[in-house]
Design a protein around this nucleic acid. Structure first.
Lengths: 184, 184, 184, 184
DNA sequence: AATGAATGAGATTTCATTCAT
DNA sequence: TATGAATGAAATCTCATTCAT
């Protein structure tokens, strides 16, 4: 997965992968363990998603805190941690999803879409009934999107534009989401 | 550029490019016009950046509107338009910058970083002196980041998570930025 | 011919040749003057051989000097001059004859074989009847061969082994050939 | 090496080399054994030079014979044998050194220059102190040059000018070198 | 389970040559 | 006569995959 994230799926040759795990490069030893190069990626993606699952179980344990601001803060930090722990997968998804949809759209959904949806639902719960589905979606899109791109910019595009540290970011983000909720 | 954005730099073969412009694929006709495949990308990037420049000139014409909310609204729509008109370039940047920094980091800076910085400066002007540099950076990161990822998700990752339309998005975004400015 | 001698027949591209004579490289202008790249070489070889002919006419003018040592000295210097004036042709012959016999074996014969034969005949005349054909051939082979390789080594192989100047070389060569003739 | 000597480095295609060793032509099987076509030449040259080394070890065994004429005769035959056993290398050197100096100048030095120098030194030993360095160099140039070109003409230029057999050649050469030494 | 060796397919690039203008 | 443009053929090299050992 490191090789795939650094060099892309085509760029990472089977020989490199073999060398990286201690097999003789170019000898085809990989094919005793995987049917094809594509299967290697599929396996790696599955394993990443399992780790993600584990992380989410932990999240469930934390459960309700009661205080909205605290809850938002934990959510932000948790989402950023998720992105960081899946940085390799994120890079692979960003670079390859459009060209290799089979494996990766599901991963993109599980890593991103589902998070957005879950957050939108949670927002509706937290805000009472006053928030309709469209409003919740909009807030979720803006709120999680801002966190997502704060990770995408440096890790994927290589642009560390503003140099904002995580504490300031999360704190401002909590205020921001809070005021959006209040405004509805 | 279409081929590069769809299939990546390596994935788009010279033969495909030749076929796409009406040359016999695989006959090397491309090399009468460009020194190498890399030069084709370089040229395409340059042309995209020139179009961006033109777009920014138009932006300058709009100038001050006076009303903060209207100004923010124009800014949001303008930034989204920029991203849309450079969708191909954006996809190429996202997929290739880390592997082919030579050509693309400059493009990433011009398309993204500089926009973030300009917006941060504009924020300080709009908010009076009460906004320090760090605060402006944080707001810019969150605000533009949320718009950026609303475009990145569908066009690059292929995830159209929430189905929020642009009008709702911009309207919510203007409220959001407005309240962040007031909060400082 | 300069390009052919420096880069070989294949190595010198038609585009380079065109550029060297002021035509647009790669535009095929050469084909208004020659049927093919091979014809260019053929023409160049012919022109070189004509110059050689001219040089030999000059040689004929000198004619008999009467003194054997003086005659040998002139012969040596003349042969070296011939090789120097045909240095380009010599390099082409050495590098390409085996691969492109059509054009070049005739040139090799005219530049080298015929010189050897003429010299062998001259030797028999100069030595009286005591020299049979085989002896004359042997002496010619050794004598002209030594001069030939003194030019081949630096100009073709790029080895300037011993740094012997032409005057010493010719003087020793005259002694050498003289004593060989006397020995028979 | 046969292909390189017959067709030149560029002329001998990787596919031909593969076919010549029983690999499927054009399948790139060569690259499992060599990094590049150039490496194939480098390896072949190294191997030829090793054989040369071996031949020279044999030469050392012969050592002093005591009789000058016998010694010269052995030297001539040995030098001719060296050239014959390295005929392929010699052809490659002659055709390619100027265009591909990296690999071949060293080979040219080892095959030719060093022989010339060694012979010049040996001459000074054999002639007593009466021979200065310049004289020795001149004699070596003429003497070995004549043998060298007797091989270069047929094998490289394809001109078998005079049809002199080796026995006559060596015998006349021994007389020739002997008289040059006496003349000093 | 690992490897040395091979191969078909395909990549980028070069180039002699042709041709309408 | 010169040129811009094109093309078929071939060159070097890469690589995923297979297979006997």
């Amino acid at each position: 997965m490191r090789l795939f994230s650094e060099q892309g799926f085509r760029g990472a040759s089977v020989a490199q992968i073999e060398a990286a795990v201690g097999l003789t490069p170019g000898a085809g030893g990989l094919y005793h363990h995987f049917e094809s190069k594509e299967e290697v990626l599929a396996f790696g993606v599955r394993r990443h998603l399992q780790r993600l699952e584990a992380l989410r179980d932990v999240r469930r344990i934390i459960g309700d805190i009661g205080d909205l601001r605290a809850e938002l803060s934990v959510t932000a930090r948790y989402f950023l941690a998720e992105l960081d722990s899946q940085a390799e997968l994120l890079q692979i998804i960003v670079a390859e999803t459009r060209r290799r949809p089979g494996l990766l759209t599901e991963a993109a959904d599980r890593l991103i879409s589902s998070t957005f949806q879950t957050f939108a639902e949670w927002l509706r719960g937290a805000a009472g009934q006053e928030l309709d589905e469209g409003q919740a979606s909009t807030i979720a899109t803006l709120a999680l999107g801002s966190l997502l791109s704060s990770r995408l910019l440096p890790s994927v595009i290589g642009v560390n534009s503003m140099g904002v540290d995580d504490d300031s970011l999360v704190s401002a983000w909590v205020d921001m989401v809070g005021s959006m909720l209040r405004a509805c």
